[in-house]
Design a binder for these strands. Structure first.
Lengths: 338, 338
DNA sequence: ACAGCATTTGGCAGCGCTGCCAATCTGGTT
DNA sequence: AACCAGATTGGCAGCGCTGCCAAATGCTGT
């Protein structure tokens, strides 16, 4: 089946109209519950639709509507990664918010590559989406130009540390870094290190580190050392990086991780090396992944409102308000590791 | 900005044609690198496009092409969840395979609900996608009817235990269960239990358990007990469930988990309860998540070719071959916990 | 210089649907 | 019985693009 057939002609609205013995525009109105029509007509149309197995063609619908109404019912989404569980959670939030209004999402993954993001934005705009949701505030000039010229609602997610193009939904990554530093300092840690991943590409992680280091320096206990592995974050990377860092600086009393995956890896390293936590070494993460709450010692971390960010992003896309920044904040989880 | 404006008229292909001083069809040919045109024309068109900031309207393009060519360059995807990291990985594979051919994916999440899946399939088909990728082999009769009537290529992912509609890409979940049981039996475990999640909804997990229990029974060492928590899989659920199971049946010498998340939770339970692994109790998971390899004792589990499944699914969607089932197999990871 | 062929180009009819407008119908009024 | 507002309906011109076809152009050999 399905082998190079010239694609059978599918049932069209005109077929339904003929079958139901009414005009095309009437069918269109009934199907969209828009305008007025009698109960009898509605029933006859419904029957014809069922009879013929009609599936509306939204390409045609959106194209026709594009002159006057809101364009297609698609929303374009660009995220940097699918590997980091954070992004699927954002997507889940968006999907939830979106299908409340019958929109659907076209998703593209940039792999933390700004050039690629620009290309993807172009590709998504070619579907004349009702709006676009992108990640972060940093984009190539070309991408910004396209977004501006598109005339559609733009939502930038996750980061509020800087000016946005239209709607911004997230929290301050810099503040997360500062608060995390404050917590460690407050607990009396003084010889603090950092374990991270690819900061050149994950710009938010870079901002957190900047805020973190800044707060430490301001308190007079500057960051002692850092171990940064190229490549995406992972438990394996965190484990290896913490091993290296502690081999070099066994005197550290606390380590800040670029995220929970890395921190979990660090935790595994400590288990294996027989280091006591937080007495021997304190660990502090970022994200508040569910898994960290199930650890024998819950991870000390910062929980971010990922799902909510997605929901709000979706919601604002539909709404017609003015441009604005929505800061959803974050929550420090004390945990037992720092 | 962007407040209820009646959507400015965007640049169209006709505008480009006028600017470049050529006909519309010429612009169309140049842009799609289809048919023949001179270098000079190409340059003039390219310049006009850049000049005007033209973004093609794929809604119109797909609609126009739909009469003769393959329909839109969209691919619809239905997955049951975004929470379980497995599905984002599938998506990543699909995205990779798809953008090699310039297709884009519209993603819908069914929440393991068959009725919802049916509705989503309808919604996706209304975009006249080039193909549809769905999860698993079990669908409502209505969903099957729609898929059949759509006339597009259908790929069913992950599970090969049963007949498919068109292309099936995955592995045998039942076989995973059997092989896992074989491994435990081979290692001498005899008093075996199971910890799982929501099997009524996650049908693949149910099939694995069926295969597992069947193999145990065949060997004369039937499954001793099971603890199944409602709701999705998670480390927290695995931890709690293992606690309950062992409280009830402290004599168990091995436990099979519905997946690695659950197993990791079980591992945490053991750490906390001071149970030695695998001497006191052996743990066996499913999925081969990266994180389990970073554990102090790597988890014994079965690694599934998730990324590859996605890639192959995408690849087959484009290809025009006959219907078939592609079994990509799986790999048993010995690990250190069983 | 001219036929013969390949290459390049433009015109235009749809693709299936929606929005606008005019036509028809309904029921109640005067 | 004539009249009117409101409800219901159908016709049809696009939405922006692609595929088909015919026309124009460029080259070659004779």
């Amino acid at each position: 089946m399905n082998v190079h057939q010239p694609r059978q002609r599918l049932v069209t609205l005109a077929d339904v109209a003929r079958e139901a013995g009414v005009g095309e525009s009437t069918v269109s109105r009934v199907l969209r519950k828009h305008g007025s029509f009698s109960k009898g007509t509605q029933d006859r149309v419904a029957e014809a639709v069922a009879q013929l197995g009609y599936v509306p063609n939204r390409l045609a619908g959106s194209l026709a509507g594009s002159a006057t109404s809101a364009g297609s019912q698609l929303v374009g989404i660009v995220i940097p990664s699918l590997t980091n569980i954070v992004f699927p959670e954002l997507l889940r939030g968006i999907a939830g918010g979106l299908d409340a209004v019958g929109f659907q999402s076209v998703i593209a993954v940039s792999d933390y590559d700004a050039e690629r993001e620009e290309a993807l934005i172009g590709a998504l705009l070619s579907w004349r989406p009702a709006g676009l949701i992108v990640t972060g505030l940093e984009h190539t000039p070309g991408a910004v130009a396209r977004l501006r010229a598109s005339g559609v609602r733009i939502v930038e997610m996750i980061d509020t540390d800087g000016p946005g193009l239209d709607i911004v939904v997230g929290f301050s990554n810099r503040a997360v870094g500062r608060v995390s530093a404050g917590h460690l300092l407050g607990r009396g840690y003084r010889r603090i290190g950092f374990v991270g991943h690819d900061l050149d590409r994950d710009l938010r992680a870079g901002k957190r580190l900047a805020g973190f280091a800044e707060a430490l320096a301001a308190a007079g206990h500057p960051l002692r050392d850092r171990e940064i592995l190229a490549g995406p974050s992972s438990a394996a990377a965190g484990r290896e990086a913490l091993g290296r860092l502690l081999a070099r600086r066994p005197d550290l009393d606390a380590v800040y991780f670029s995220n929970d995956d890395m921190a979990l890896g660090g935790y595994f390293h400590c288990l294996e090396a027989g280091l006591s936590i937080p007495g021997g070494i304190a660990l502090f993460g970022y994200n508040g992944l569910d898994i960290t709450a199930a650890m024998p010692q819950p991870l000390s971390t910062v929980r971010t409102p990922r799902l909510r960010i997605g929901e709000v992003a979706a919601e604002r896309l539909g709404a017609g308000g003015p441009s604005e920044t929505v800061d959803l904040g974050f929550e420090l989880i004390e945990g037992a590791t720092a």
